[in-house]
Nucleic acid binder design. Sequence first.
DNA 1: GCTTGACCTCAAGTCGACTTGAAGTAGCAC
DNA 2: GTGCTACTTCAAGTCGACTTGAGGTCAAGC
Lengths: 143, 143
Amino acid sequence: MTQLDIAEVARRAGVPASTLRYYEEKGLIAATGRRGLRRQYDPGVLERLALIAMGRTAGFSLDEIAHMFAPDGRPRIDREMLSTKAEELDRRIRELGVLRDSLRHAAACPAPSHMECPTFRRLLAAAAAGAVAVPRKRAPGPP
Amino acid sequence: MTQLDIAEVARRAGVPASTLRYYEEKGLIAATGRRGLRRQYDPGVLERLALIAMGRTAGFSLDEIAHMFAPDGRPRIDREMLSTKAEELDRRIRELGVLRDSLRHAAACPAPSHMECPTFRRLLAAAAAGAVAVPRKRAPGPP
DNA sequence: GCTTGACCTCAAGTCGACTTGAAGTAGCAC
DNA sequence: GTGCTACTTCAAGTCGACTTGAGGTCAAGC
């Protein structure tokens, strides 16, 4: 039997066991059985967790990700949705690129105050015009 | 008097009035006075809101942004912090770039199931290895 | 056979950035 | 002076993805 203990899965996937239980509750993963109380998993769960991590990074919610699995557990990913998400990502990437360049400029800018730098002011105008979207904070990483 | 009514500021900045009140509570902006009960703002608040929006997009929290203003209200932005954030953004951008390309590939991939596509599996392995970070959801945009 | 410690369940708490709701008020048009 | 309406305050609620805590259980090692 090649079953993995929850602790082993947690270790290998780099997530806390509480997260695995939470994912199970959400229907994202499933234990194949128990040894005593303890969940046992098929090694395939690691691939699935990777898929989940990827989806999260791409900006999908857990609920959306849950819909990407067919009832039999195989991925059922709508190609059109992927394209859409790819375009979204692309927009976001360009946005962040502009912002990064601006930050770099501001960091190097010799103007005594950032408000006196034309480049900075131009960026600000762009931001005011709604050229930039508002993302949220990152999840807390491992401590 | 060139004072702006809160509704006007909300309209021009593209944020709800409740957000302006919230920002005031957090010390991010300040009304210059009241007309009756209603807050009046100096037009400069728009620039400040743009700065806040920019900071949010760059991934700063409101508290962090609050520290970027000197007591006199002028921006006081640590250049080193800007560089640091620029590098962070850069990393994130590259990460998202890889992900975008992978999504595009997966969308175009002829394999019957994504799991049978070598490229997809390779990406998955990278994700599993922790090559990707987990971002959070976006703020709700304008409806 | 008894302890130990890692797991279990379930409810509740956390975090950040707002939003919502109830109850009140003031400027403006009439 | 009356009403309308858009504002006001303050407390509480929301959302997603988890985490935490209390109290319970069980396989394994001694």
